[in-house]
Each structure stands twice: as C-alpha cells, then as structure tokens.
C-alpha cells in the first residue's frame, strides 16, 4: 500500500510536484497519467527514495521513505524511465547483482529463472546487456524490479520501446502482478492506462487534476445531455425547429458545408431525451437526419480537457494536428 500526503518537490523556483496526495491500496493498479514534464517521474523518484521531497510524506506499507529508507526500499521494486542496466554485464550477472544488492533471501537460481520466464528473457539469459535490443533491455529492467518479489511495484512507462505483441504480454503480466502487489505505473499512453489500471490519477504541471476510477472519470466529465446531429435541410430553419423542442438548452451549428447541410451540437436539460422528438420534427418537414450521436468522451478527450482545459479547439485548428 502506498500513501502520499501533500507531497511537494521544488527545483529552485520550479514546482515540479505541487502538494499532491493519493493512495494506492493493496492489489490495486494505479495509473499515473500526464503529459511530458507533468511530474510523473519526479513523483516516482520520490516514492522510491531516489530523490527527497521538499515537503509532505510518502508511506510505503506504512513506512516513511525518508525516515526509514532502508526498510521502505526493501518493499519496492522500481523500474525507472531509463532502465538502470550495467551494459557490460550479462543478464544473469546483472540480475544476480541486483539479487545481492537487495539482500534477497529466496533461492537464487530458481527465483531468477522464474522472473526471466515471467518477462520472457530466459532466451537471452547469458547475453551481454549492451547487445540486446531496446525491448529486451526494457524487460531486463522490469525483471530487475521483480527481484526479491517486493510488495510494491513502481513502473515508469514500462512498455516504452516494446513491440505491440510484447506490450500486450507486459500489460497482461502487470495485471496479473496487480492482483497481489500494489502497482503504480506511469504512462502518457491513454489506452494503456485504460486497459490496465483500476484507478487513474491525472497529473498536470505538478498538480493532481483528477483522481478516480476510469468509469467515474468518464461519468463526471462526459455530458450525457449533449448530442450532435447532421441534418440535410435548410440550416437556419432547422435551427429554429430544434430550438423549439421542449427541454433544449442550447443549439450550435458546429459545421456548415452548404446552406442545406450542416451539423448541430445540441444540449438539453438533464434527464430529457430529445432524440425521438428531434427525429419526428425533422422528418415531418421532409429533411433527413444523416447522423445522430451522443458525444461520448474518451479517456483521450478527458485527458485533453483536464490538462489543456478550454484550449482544445485551438489545439485542433493548428495545421490539423490533433
């Protein structure tokens, strides 16, 4: 279990992490989501005792990482952003070194073999690390974090550099590990967090902007009363017709291809479903509805909304880059 209370880290004037608090329970996978430079790695470095916090506490299974670092570090397996590998060692030598470093008590050979099978590096067990591909290096880094079977796993972008098959394998592995470990994993890949994590903490510019389960995040942010509709018919008249439906809050034309064809964004009052009424009125006038959809926010949009705020349209309009 990891408890973080009012954690801050300042680098000079810059607040890399600014008063964040969250908790990850046993058997929970917590996804740490944020754009580059949001403070994800800094937070993880603090949790693992690599750097110290300016303020606040981080408890690993109830042990303060600053007060009792040795005891707290025994409970942690850490995969940093760049796997900390000694390039001149073989995988076997390296893992054996980490085994000694962590003062591990489990039977050496079987334990290391098990880990290698788990992350599928047993076929490169005797090779020198510098000759391995990026994906293998990443997995050796993950293996290193698993040595000693620590309670808490902190993984900084664990699937970087892996091919799609390996990504799925590693995600499955993390999910499996999450059943009896506390796992914190950071990522800026949204689908990854969506696929793996029980709980999501979104961080931006050192501050937590959301902390909830994925469903709740979507629920709170998605406005279910918003629909968008494409109508083949005179736009101005159509707008009037839609506005006259009972329970409508606002109608906007979002795009207009010709005077006879445009797309509306309609917001209605809570609990009112206007779709049937809308269909009836449009068809009465012999216009056509070509498309009708409720705007469902994906995690990606939530993420953008939380981290960029009101500027989403501006982001979209720059050279068509989304």
């Amino acid at each position: 279990m990891i408890e973080v209370k009012n954690l801050s880290k300042h680098f000079g004037d810059k607040k890399a992490v600014d008063d964040i608090s969250f908790t990850a329970e046993d058997g929970e996978i917590l996804g740490f989501l944020g754009p580059n430079g949001a403070g994800k790695s800094t937070t993880m470095n603090i949790l693992t005792g690599y750097i110290s916090s300016t303020d606040g506490v981080a408890l690993i299974d109830g042990v303060d990482i600053l007060e009792n670092p040795i005891k707290a570090k025994q409970k942690i397996g850490y995969l940093p952003e760049q796997p900390p590998l000694y390039m001149d060692m073989t995988v076997k030598e390296y893992l054996s070194f980490v085994y000694d470093l962590k003062k591990c008590k489990l039977p050496r050979n079987t334990h290391l073999k098990d880990i290698c099978q788990l992350v599928k590096i047993d076929n490169v067990y005797n090779r020198v690390i510098k000759n391995l591909s990026k994906g293998y290096k990443q997995r050796v880094g993950l293996a290193q974090a698993l040595v000693g079977n620590p309670n808490v796993l902190i993984l900084d972008e664990p699937t970087v550099g892996l091919d799609p098959n390996q990504i799925i394998e590693i995600r499955t592995l993390i999910k499996r590990l999450g059943k009896n470990h506390t796992v914190i994993l950071s990522s800026h890949i949204l689908s990854e967090v969506q696929a793996v994590c029980d709980k999501i903490v979104v961080i931006n510019q050192g501050k937590i902007v959301a902390d909830d389960t994925e469903e709740n995040l979507s629920k709170n942010l998605v406005n279910n009363n918003k629909i968008s509709v494409k109508i083949d018919g005179p736009c101005d008249e159509a707008e009037k017709v839609i506005s006259s439906i009972a329970g409508i809050k606002s109608v906007d034309i979002t795009s207009k291809e010709t005077d006879e064809f445009c797309e509306f964004s309609i917001e209605s009052e809570e609990g009112v479903d206007i779709r049937r009424e809308l269909f009836k009125r449009i068809s009465e006038r012999n216009w056509y509805i070509l498309e009708l959809k409720t705007s469902n926010m994906s995690l990606e949009e939530i993420f953008l909304k939380l981290t960029v705020g009101e500027n989403i349209p501006a982001v979209k309009s720059y050279g068509g880059v989304k």
């Binding site: 693992t48 005792g49 690599y50 670092p69 040795i70 005891k71 570090k73 025994q74 942690i76 850490y78 940093p80 760049q82 900390p84 590998l85 000694y86 390039m87 980490v98 470093l101 962590k102 003062k103 290193q144």
Partner: peptide
C-alpha cells in the same frame, strides 16, 4: 551518466 545510480540508490543499501 548511465542512470545506473537509480538501481543503487533505490535499493536497501546505505
């Protein structure tokens, strides 16, 4: 430089 200090400094060694 190689960031291997991360494995040393985050392991239970003083």
């Amino acid at each position: 430089r190689q960031k291997t200090d991360q494995v040393l400094l985050t392991s239970p060694v003083s």
